[in-house]
Amino acid sequence: MENTPLRYTDLPIGDRAAFELVCARHGFAPSHFDISACPDPGDAAHERLVTVRRGGWAQSYHDHHGQWVRQFESDLTCRFFK
């Protein structure tokens, strides 16, 4: 899998619903973020590495059964993307 740009609408339905809920809880819309995904060469147990960008800020998360959304919410709680 090469680095493929995604929008939140391209995510699996469960991830998309969780992402939308997390965004709404923190006063954002999913369109406020750019999402890209690529394989994680350093960790075969994870399906891919999901990178979320907003403005000059970016954070990458391991996508293991949607766990990246929880990590993303933690960053929103800490105001990483504000």
Rank of each mutant, 00 (worst) to 15 (best):
D10I: 08
A18V: 11
R53G: 02
R54L: 05
L11S: 05
A44K: 13
G27F: 13
P12S: 08
R48Q: 14
H32M: 09
F19M: 00
P41I: 05
P41L: 10
Q71R: 11
T51K: 01
G27V: 14
S74G: 12
G55A: 08
G42P: 00
D43P: 03
C23K: 03
A18C: 14
G56R: 10
D15V: 05
T9M: 06
L21K: 07
Y8M: 00
L21Q: 12
A17M: 05
R16S: 06
I35W: 00
V22W: 09
D10Q: 04
E73V: 05
H32N: 15
Q67W: 00
P39Y: 12
F80N: 01
P39G: 09
D34M: 08
H26I: 04
D34H: 09
H65S: 14
E73Y: 10
T77E: 12
F33S: 10
I13Y: 08
H46N: 15
G42Q: 13
P12A: 10
A45V: 15
S60Q: 13
D10G: 07
A18M: 12
G55W: 02
H32Q: 15
Y61S: 07
T51W: 01
P41E: 11
Y8P: 02
D40T: 09
W57T: 13
H65Y: 09
E73S: 01
F28K: 01
P39N: 14
A18K: 06
L21R: 08
H46E: 12
S60K: 03
A44W: 05
H65D: 15
R70I: 12
L76W: 03
S31C: 12
A37Y: 09
R7A: 00
R16F: 05
Y61P: 04
G55V: 02
F81Y: 14
H32S: 12
C38I: 04
R48D: 15
C23T: 06
L76P: 01
P12R: 00
G56I: 06
R7L: 12
H62S: 08
F33V: 01
R25M: 09
H46L: 11
L21W: 08
R54G: 06
E73Q: 10
F72I: 15
T9K: 02
I35Q: 01
S36L: 06
F28W: 15
G66A: 04
C23W: 09
L11W: 07
D40Q: 13
C23N: 11
A29D: 12
H64F: 15
D43S: 04
L49H: 08
S74P: 00
W68D: 02
P30A: 06
R54P: 07
D43Q: 15
F19G: 01
L6P: 04
A18S: 15
H65V: 15
F28Q: 08
A45L: 12
V22M: 03
G27Y: 14
E73P: 01
T77D: 12
V69Y: 01
T51Q: 07
C23Q: 11
R70N: 10
H64T: 15
G42K: 14
R25L: 07
F72S: 03
S31P: 07
P30S: 14
L49P: 02
L6R: 04
G42W: 13
G14P: 07
L21P: 01
A37R: 00
T9Q: 05
F19H: 02
I13Q: 12
R79N: 03
H65W: 10
F33Q: 03
L21M: 08
P5I: 15
Q71F: 13
L49W: 11
F33Y: 07
H65P: 10
H32T: 14
P5K: 06
R7T: 07
L76T: 04
V69H: 04
